[in-house]
């Protein structure tokens, strides 16, 4: 069985040995990269700086929450707002792999720039097993290029260090609980963020719509779980689809987008089954999304696909 205590001890030792100079941790505030940050801090203390990139594709209030968490952790950190860069780079891009590669490259350029400023030799990432597995290579097919693996350009100016490469989400959580990491139970959120929760082309307006839809979905699911109405899913989110359908609003026809909501149970994200959420909860989510976002969304569908054949995120 996976032994979190042993893992922390061994990985901290390895990092101590490996990181002979200043290092930077690419940290989204999620459980993987925050665990990697805490391990690296244990190993090299103040020679570590955490960099969080606001891609403009983050969830509601996310950047502020991460800032607070970094402060609580006592990390040296920087929050870089690169929203405009990301949005411009993604303009008119519809193909999911292209989106992921552009995002991977944007991330690394930001880190490169920051690394130069600080004279950093190592970039630590919270890459876990499914990231490199799904990114493919050799005999393995590429399912999705994860932004921290397959999306990386070939010319990078520092060495990449990945202490969590061989572990899965459930194992990272065990380490996070042991280390008392605040985001230990936070649901997975993909590195490319809301960009892969908008099927097809990305506009500022669509980002706002999907951000709000995700906030509604998260709010109702979490409340229902707290009230004991449902088992808390492993992951739960909303995706803005690219097709429009007809609706009726106050005796007027409208023709706007569909939001697909999805919730899954999983251990490690490598296989998943859709959550059997009661209709009453689904209905509540549907009503809130279609009312709050009525001029943009008039239809909500619930995704009942397992993985495989589907993946968890749409892109």
């Amino acid at each position: 069985m996976f032994d979190a205590e042993k893992f922390v001890k061994e990985e901290t030792e390895k990092l101590k040995e490996k990181l002979t100079d200043k290092a930077m941790i690419a940290c989204s505030g999620g459980v993987d990269s925050t665990v990697a940050a805490v391990l690296a801090k244990k190993a090299i203390g103040n020679n570590l700086v955490a960099v969080y990139v606001d891609t403009g594709m983050m969830r509601k209030n996310e950047t502020e929450e991460v800032r607070k968490m970094f402060e609580n952790l006592g990390l040296n950190f920087k929050i870089i707002n690169a929203s405009e860069d990301f949005l411009t780079a993604l303009e008119n891009v519809t193909e999911p792999e292209e989106k992921r590669k552009i995002i991977g490259e944007r991330f690394i350029r930001v880190f490169e720039e920051e690394a130069k400023k600080d004279g950093v030799k190592y970039l630590i990432q919270g890459t876990i097993a499914p990231d490199w597995i799904e990114s493919g290579g050799g005999e393995r097919d590429t399912i999705k290029s994860h932004h921290n693996v397959g999306g990386l350009p070939e010319d990078i100016g520092f060495e990449i260090v990945e202490p969590l490469r061989d572990v899965y989400k459930d194992e990272v959580r065990k380490v996070a609980r042991l280390l008392g990491v605040e985001s230990k139970e936070r649901q997975p959120f993909p590195g490319p963020g809301l960009a892969v929760r908008i099927v097809g082309d990305i506009t500022k307006e669509k980002v706002e719509v999907v951000r709000e839809a995700n906030a509604i979905m998260e709010g109702i699911i979490e409340k229902s779980a707290d009230e004991g109405k449902i088992e808390k899913p492993w992951q739960y989110f909303a995706t803005l689809l690219s097709s429009k359908t007809v609706g009726v609003h106050g005796d007027l026809r409208n023709y706007v987008y569909i939001v697909s909501i999805r919730a899954v149970q999983s251990l490690d994200g490598m296989s998943a089954s859709y959550s059997k959420i009661p209709h009453e909860v689904l209905e509540k989510i549907s009503i809130e999304i279609t009312n709050k976002l009525g001029d943009k969304v008039n239809r909500v569908v619930y995704d009942i696909t397992n993985k495989p054949p589907g993946t968890i995120e749409f892109e």
Binding site: A129, I133, D166, D268, M270
Partner: peptide
């Protein structure tokens, strides 16, 4: 033996979990 599967590493994990 890795034939390039999505779940090759899972096989490794299960065996490791079983000692």
């Amino acid at each position: 033996v890795d034939n390039g599967g999505q779940w090759t590493h899972r096989e490794w994990r299960v065996l490791r979990d079983l000692g």
